[in-house]
Computed example of a mutant assay.
Amino acid sequence: MEGVSVLEWIGTLPFAVAIRRSAILYLFVNAAHVLSIGLLVGAILPLDLRLLGFFRKVPVEVVGPFLSRAAATGVGLAIITGFCLFSVRPLEYAGNAAFLTKITLLALGITNALLLHLTPQWRAAVKGGPLSPRVRLSALLSVAIWTGAVLSGRWIGFLSE
């Protein structure tokens, strides 16, 4: 791989070449990415809103673990499909401010969720305990971070024109 950057190498991967050559394959990978993001946001936003005090009749101990796993599945699928889309034009995307913002927010969102899930306050909340200020702050950050990530993702196309 001497003389070839990692970004250039990513662009030569077989799936990257296949996606670049096939509009239909690109369409399906793009649709899978959008659906993955839908799963992530569709799970995390209701959970965050519940943790912030909305929908008080919905028990956190019931929806918390389920929606967390659904959001984690969405994140995993979005990363896989997003990497496939990135591989089509890695040099261009690596210099795109919106893409870099999205990746930064993605890392922050995952870190926020992991840190929350490691706390005794989260474990207490999913056992029916009180929603601590730590849990509520994490939920508020989550809403802002994931909303920003979605907006940044939409912004990518406008900066690559």
Rank of each mutant, 00 (worst) to 15 (best):
G3E: 05
G3C: 02
G3Q: 05
G3V: 06
V4Q: 14
V4E: 13
S5M: 11
S5L: 11
V6T: 14
L7G: 06
L7K: 09
E8W: 13
E8G: 12
I10T: 07
I10S: 01
G11P: 06
T12Q: 12
T12A: 10
T12Y: 10
P14S: 07
F15W: 04
F15A: 00
F15S: 00
A16M: 05
V17A: 03
I19M: 03
R20D: 04
R21I: 11
R21C: 09
A23K: 11
I24H: 12
L25N: 00
L25H: 01
L25R: 02
Y26N: 10
Y26G: 04
L27F: 14
L27C: 08
V29W: 04
V29G: 00
N30T: 12
N30W: 14
H33C: 03
V34R: 05
L35P: 00
I37W: 07
G38Y: 05
L40Q: 04
V41H: 04
V41L: 10
G42L: 04
I44H: 02
L45I: 13
P46H: 05
L47P: 03
D48N: 15
L49P: 09
R50D: 04
R50T: 10
R50I: 14
L51R: 05
G53I: 13
G53L: 14
F54K: 11
F55W: 12
F55K: 06
R56C: 07
R56L: 09
V58W: 15
P59G: 01
E61N: 10
E61Q: 12
V63W: 15
G64M: 01
P65N: 14
P65G: 08
F66A: 12
S68G: 09
R69P: 03
R69G: 07
R69L: 13
A70Q: 11
A70F: 09
A70P: 09
A70S: 12
